[in-house]
Nucleic acid binder design. Sequence first.
DNA 1: ACAGTGCCTTGACACTGTCAAGCAATTCCG
DNA 2: CGGAATTGCTTGACAGTGTCAAGGCACTGT
Lengths: 204, 204
Amino acid sequence: MVQDPGSLRDVLIEAGIALLEEGGMQALTLRQTAARAGVSHAAPAHHFDGLPGLLTAMAARAFKLFADAIHSGREAGGTDPLQRLLGTTEGYLTFASQHAGLFHLMFISPQVNRADPVLGPHATRAYQILREACQPFGDGTPDEALELAVWSMVHGYALLGFTAEDPERHPFHRRPAFRELLVQLLAGRQIPVINRLAPAPDIR
Amino acid sequence: MVQDPGSLRDVLIEAGIALLEEGGMQALTLRQTAARAGVSHAAPAHHFDGLPGLLTAMAARAFKLFADAIHSGREAGGTDPLQRLLGTTEGYLTFASQHAGLFHLMFISPQVNRADPVLGPHATRAYQILREACQPFGDGTPDEALELAVWSMVHGYALLGFTAEDPERHPFHRRPAFRELLVQLLAGRQIPVINRLAPAPDIR
DNA sequence: ACAGTGCCTTGACACTGTCAAGCAATTCCG
DNA sequence: CGGAATTGCTTGACAGTGTCAAGGCACTGT
């Protein structure tokens, strides 16, 4: 039986993603992935050279989707710099909550090789988008401190959302919207657009 | 052979922590923990009712150590409100980098039961310390948005530190110190010590 | 003395990732 | 054209994992 070359690879990646989204990291297994793709139990290891290889390939695809998500979030923000940045972070958070498994893979799993030549460029692209959205709030030159502050805050906010499972007990779930937090961060910046501080249209 | 009751429990917890700090989450195994403690392979499951139970007990201890760490970080900050908050976050970040495995257990591992009656209070205490350190920067009443902004930022900063393994490639490792980021966040606040750093525009 | 109760061991089970070997179809090449 | 190498996957085995039932062993209370 002959398939177009590389076909099973993609089938396996998608089978893995399906398992991950259904049952979390626990359910993502080489053998289960093989079973779902309808091949023998050792086929995935053959294509990806072991579990870390499969996870890395999945994470690479995840980073591409992630970069797309924050890109379209930024575009939805229109032309106003603040709305663009808010849209970008909105895309970040939406992706994190809708694809918790992939997010975990990208940023947490120690088995993923983040220096992978396929994964790397997608990750860099995602960072560039965030970076550019921060640009107007710097003093003209790229402001690494601001970028990292925004990045840390949105990343931490996303991850605290996972940790705080119980809405009743955990302070995180009496949370103010992230928009407010980001505005707090930008409040020290000397740019006029902040002062307009519009009640935000809901981006998604 | 009779031991003081509860003794093996503690031995197992410490064996687990040792394994975790040596070899990461991969090395932390019920059977390895048993072997290191010098007992049979099923002993841990007997005491903790399975792997999640052991992880939860370890996480509970970790939260206690964590609360102690940020508490003493706060104390080291002296009486100045800004220095106290900076000290608290310093304690947070130091703990995260020095006990990466425990940090992962506390905030990431899905197997930990974070509603555990032992774990819960320690986690709450840790949050209270951060909360109190933020207090002087609110308008008198507790300011949840500020607390959460600080918490998100320090948490995200810590976790990005784990993700960015490669100091050469990753932007995170050309990082400005976290102190600078936090001051950015507080720059919009109307308290004297901050305003000396950066004059705030009037928003709101 | 004797049943009861914790505490731990033993042995088994299904499941995991990894590896060596094999097999069948395709492609190469002399 | 026909053997040989390569590719893509299967088969079978192995050690390691969490979990569970059964049992044993020492101590306690009566």
